[in-house]
């Protein structure tokens, strides 16, 4: 069970459950009446890649037509199962020394802006000292859906009777007003939400729905404003 440490507007906090909201299952690809499996397979050996073939002398295109040099019949088609990631040097050789890791930042124009040693960014949604909290900023649903694209939603659920009351009250308050509340992480509640180490930072908008004694508390996550490229913020 994934957990989130959440504080309400009255500064009461609790650690509760978090589940991803899944897309309704869609159709699968197949052939009626046939049992198929989806597999990854070897399509070419290194000698059959364009990078290698293009260095050979002669008319490569004609060679491809005449003799299929890109296909090694001994191995092409072989099922590729579990593999281990390795890094090759710029010369294509296996590294025998530890590589260095850097984070490279690019601007919207694609130009490199900054390069710095990579640093791990910890998750911040289940911190004992800094619960995820209401920022005090609320928006109507109509406003929020025209300003942000929500790429993920997670559902917040109770783990016992007390947390049911805690969450139901939140959901009812938001549902009655037709609003969503902006949540923030960190000591001051201003940071974006990061659900796992080095995960994508998201702005979280909490939506509540109630139906009699039942409730839904949905945390909609966005890392993208609805803004035309080049338009002023």
């Amino acid at each position: 069970m994934r957990k989130i440490h959440l504080m309400n507007e009255e500064k009461r906090d609790a650690t509760i459950a978090l589940e991803s909201v899944k897309e309704r299952p869609g159709p699968t690809s197949g052939v009626p009446g046939k049992k198929l499996s989806f597999r990854r397979y070897l399509a070419a050996t290194e000698a059959g890649t364009w990078t290698r073939l293009s260095t050979q002398a002669g008319d490569v295109a004609q060679a491809l037509i005449d003799a299929d040099p890109e296909i090694d019949r001994e191995v092409v088609g072989k099922h590729v199962g579990d593999t281990q990631t390795v890094f090759l040097s710029a010369k294509g050789e296996v590294l025998h020394a530890s590589p260095s890791i850097v984070d490279v930042l690019f601007g919207p124009d694609g130009a490199e802006r900054e390069r710095k040693p990579a640093a791990d960014v910890p998750a911040n949604t289940n911190e004992k000292e800094s619960p995820v909290r209401w920022t005090g900023r609320r928006m109507s649903k109509a406003e929020v859906v025209t300003k942000f694209a929500f790429r993920r939603s997670v559902q917040i659920k109770h783990v016992d009777g007390l947390s049911y009351d805690f969450l139901y009250k939140m959901a009812k308050d938001l549902a009655d007003k037709g609003e969503v509340a902006l949540l923030g992480a960190g000591p001051k509640g201003r940071d974006p939400l990061i659900f796992q180490e080095n995960g994508t930072p998201y702005r979280g908008f909490l939506e509540g729905r109630v139906d009699g004694p039942r409730y839904k508390l949905l945390l909609h996550l966005s890392n993208l404003e609805l803004r035309a490229p080049g338009a002023a913020t």
Partner: peptide, 24 residues
């Protein structure tokens, strides 16, 4: 809108490494 961040693996000469896979 905002640009992007990429994590690069560099070889001892500061050149970008290529990610590959090794069969089990």
């Amino acid at each position: 809108l905002y640009g992007k961040r990429q994590r690069w693996i560099l070889d001892p000469h500061g050149q970008r490494c290529e990610r590959a896979e090794l069969s089990r």
